[in-house]
Amino acid sequence: MQCDMFVVRHRDSGAAHFIARHVRPGVSVINAGDGRHAHPTQAMLDMFTIRQHKGDFAPLVVAIIGDILHSRVARSQIHALNALGVAEVRVIGPRTLLPRDIDDLGARVFYDMRSGLRDVDVVCMLRLQRERMEGALLPSEAEFFRRYGLTEDKLALAKPDAIVMHPGPINRGVEIDSAVADGPRSVILPQVTNGIAVRMAVMSLAMQATGEAA
């Protein structure tokens, strides 16, 4: 195939790695999300959004909330935040949605949202897939929302200037209340806008690297 670039989104973890091992030298492979493993461009646009709103990463406490187990976004965010040297990364969710030894990745585990949100600068919500009820991971969306849905009263525990992020598409009333998603502290729409710029930059840099290699 005479392609210059593969942009790969695949249900299997490791799919982009697999393709990268089998293409000609100089061909770019961009991982646009593989299984539960990684979603690098999402994490990059999230970091870009945090920088726009918060500036320095060093003092920040960031909480990632919800279905960590199945989330490639959460894994890439944890790696990116630690690489940028934030003060603390927290993951918050019920034990059924937290993978084993997640603390080894550099994240502090909270089961209780009210303690986990205290003094947080950045709140990263994750999308909850409806099929999680069938795998006996959760009893119902309503119960999840009661404990882990982001509402204004729970958000009040975070720092007053905390921002709220979500990789989209959002499930209103499941992981996030509409009042928060559309509220003054939400940066969900700027995230979408930044996503275009960051992905353009990734493609441009990858193609430049290809040009230099050739």
Binding site: S13, G35, D101
Partner: peptide
């Protein structure tokens, strides 16, 4: 199922 599977995002 362990730390490596968690990091790789692979069902354990």
């Amino acid at each position: 199922e362990g730390g490596v599977a968690t990091r790789m995002g692979v069902a354990g």
